[in-house]
């Protein structure tokens, strides 16, 4: 039986397509890696809602209020209940709803001052628009009493439209 002349040649796998594929996968996972946005809090276990809609990115200034539930984190360390106010660069840990109300009132004054700069913004303000949007991210294990304290603080600071954040359920 005749043997081909190149029988002894070492077989070399072509690694280039595999390497291309691997690098593409690495790039995909790197881009998809979701780093927690600073204005939100991963400790908050949000409730589910089917009617929840994604916030429009063109809605202007947004105030995030995070209310965590006391308990152990994933490393078993005890975490207290926290209430934080985030509006752009302003990030304040509030000790109670009264402090939160003060922060919201300050933000309302900032909104008002910003609206006075341009005539069209002033007209919007007079019509009841142009306010920051208040988004409440509260843990689903809280009682309504605690949620109501935050809503009352927002209402007292003249914020009437509020958005309750929830995990969007697919219908």
């Amino acid at each position: 039986m005749s043997v081909p002349a190149n029988h002894d040649k070492a077989a070399e796998p072509n690694l280039t397509p595999m390497l291309d594929m691997v690098l593409q996968l690495v790039m995909f996972f790197m881009l998809c890696a979701n780093f927690i946005a600073e204005e939100t809090n991963a400790m908050v276990k949000l409730p589910d809602a089917s009617a929840a809609r994604i916030l429009d990115k063109n809605t202007g200034q947004t105030i995030f209020i995070n209310l965590t539930y006391p308990g152990k984190d994933k490393f078993g360390v005890d975490q207290p209940k926290t209430l934080t106010f985030n509006a752009g660069v302003r990030k304040v840990a509030c000790s109670n709803s009264l402090q939160l109300q003060t922060e919201l009132e300050n933000q309302y004054k900032l909104d008002e001052a910003r609206a006075q700069k341009k005539p069209q913004d002033r007209a919007e303000w007079e019509a009841g628009r142009g306010r920051s949007i208040v988004v409440l991210r509260a843990d689903q294990r809280h009682d309504y009493k605690e949620i109501n304290e935050i809503l009352a603080a927002a209402r007292a600071a003249n914020y009437r439209d509020i958005q309750l954040r929830a995990i969007q359920l697919k219908n």
Binding site: F29, C32, N34, A49, V135, Y159, D161, I162, Q163, Q168
Partner: peptide, 14 residues
Amino acid sequence: FRPVPTEGQLALVL
């Protein structure tokens, strides 16, 4: 890799 669930809002009027 853990896909983060999408968060949405329920808009309310106080």
